[in-house]
Write a protein that binds this DNA or RNA. Sequence first.
DNA 1: AAAAAAACGTTAAATAGGCTACAGTTGCGA
DNA 2: TCGCAACTGTAGCCTATTTAACGTTTTTTT
Lengths: 207, 207
Amino acid sequence: MVTVYEEIFHWEDYLKFGTRQFFRKKEHIYKQGEYGEGFYYLHKGLVRIVTETATGKENMLNIVIPNQLLGVQSLDQKTHFTTAIAVKDSVVYHFSADEFRKLMIAHPELFKLFSKSVIHKMKILLDRINLNALTSEQKLAVLLHNICDEFKNYEIPISQQDLACCTGLTRITVYKVLKEWQEAGIIEINKRKYFIKKPDFLRNLVS
Amino acid sequence: MVTVYEEIFHWEDYLKFGTRQFFRKKEHIYKQGEYGEGFYYLHKGLVRIVTETATGKENMLNIVIPNQLLGVQSLDQKTHFTTAIAVKDSVVYHFSADEFRKLMIAHPELFKLFSKSVIHKMKILLDRINLNALTSEQKLAVLLHNICDEFKNYEIPISQQDLACCTGLTRITVYKVLKEWQEAGIIEINKRKYFIKKPDFLRNLVS
DNA sequence: AAAAAAACGTTAAATAGGCTACAGTTGCGA
DNA sequence: TCGCAACTGTAGCCTATTTAACGTTTTTTT
C-alpha cells in the first residue's frame, strides 16, 4: 500500500550544499542492488519507491512527495534495497555521505532534521506492514483516501494497474472492488478516471 | 514474519552515557502509543517488537538481539508506534534525545553508528513487507530458516502458536504446513519440538 | 498514421487459507 | 499434586482472491 505522507521538513536552508539533479518522468533515480553513496532530497516532482520481492514481483512501497528524503538506505555505502522511479519530471538534491557528515558538524541541528525524516520513513514502512491485516476493500479505501489527501481533490490520477501494485492485490480484485463501489455510487468512473463521490464511506471502512 | 538479524554495531564505548535499565521476561519496555523520549540499546537479553494493527490484531515485527537499538521511533518526542516486550530478562541502555544530541556533538562519529543502526531497522521492515508476497509455505520456510541461522542449529525453540504470530498466518495453517513437511520427511516433530532434517528444501522454496 | 504495447472489462474455474469447533496434551502456579 | 490455562491435533466448510483467458480500448512509439 502506498501512502502519501505529508509532513514538512525544512531542508531548504541546506539545499545549497547538495548537488542538484534532474530526472525525467519514468527515469530511475536509483535501483535496487546498486551502490549508493548518500541520499536524495526531493525538491520538485513525484517519485515512487518500489521493491522487488524474492519472487520477482514488484511492490510499491510509497510515493515520495517534495520535501522528503529518499535513498537513505545507502548512506553508509550499502546497496540500495529499493528502486526509485520518477513519476513526474523531478528535481532532487543529492547529499553524499561525507559531505553530509561534515555539514552536520557545522550544523548540529541537522541531526534532528535527518532523524525526523528517517523516522518518518520508518513509520511509512510500518503502516505498509499493518495494511496486510486489512481486507482488500479496506486496503483500497486507505489508498484512495490517502491519494485524495495528497492531491487535494477527489480525482484519482492513478491507473487501476498501479492501484493493484500499490496494494499488493491483483488487478482483477481492484477492478471488482472499484466496480462494486461504482454500482453503489461511491465512486464515479469516467474515461478510466476515478472520482470519489463519497469520501466518508471510504473513511468509515477503515476506522 | 520475524527475522532475527545479526549485525554488530559497536556501541560499547558510548554505553556509559546512557541509563542502564533492567526488564524481566515478559515486561514491556515501551508500548505503542506511549510517549517516548530517546531510544534504547539492547545490551543483554532478547526483545520482541510487535505492533497492533487497526483491527486489533497483534503482529510481530522482529526480534531484537543484543547490540541493536530499539524504540528509535520516538527520538523526536513522538509516540511509539510499536511495542517492545522482553522475551528474556534483558538489560538495556536508554539514551534521551537531548543527551544523545549533545553526545553526538562531542563524538561526531556517532552519527555513522546511529544511521547504520537505523538503516538496518528499515531493512528489517522492508523484508517484512516483502514477505507478504509469499505463500504461507514460503513464509514459514523463511522464518524457520532464519531461526536456525540465528540459533545455530536445526532445532526450533518456538511454539506453533508463535510461528503463527510471526508469520501472520493462523495456527491451523501453520499446523497444516508443518504436518505436511513432517509427512514428507522435511522436518521431524517430537514432543512438540521441531527439528529440521532437510534445510535445503526450505531454502529452495524461497530462492 | 500505423503498429506495438499497455491497460481495461469481464467471466469462469481453481484454491489457498481463514474460521469454527472440540477433544486431547502439556505445563505452570498455587 | 490438583486445576486451570495455554498449546496442539484434526476435520470440514466457506469465501475472498488468484489464475487463466480473451476481446476491447487507450496510449506510446516509430
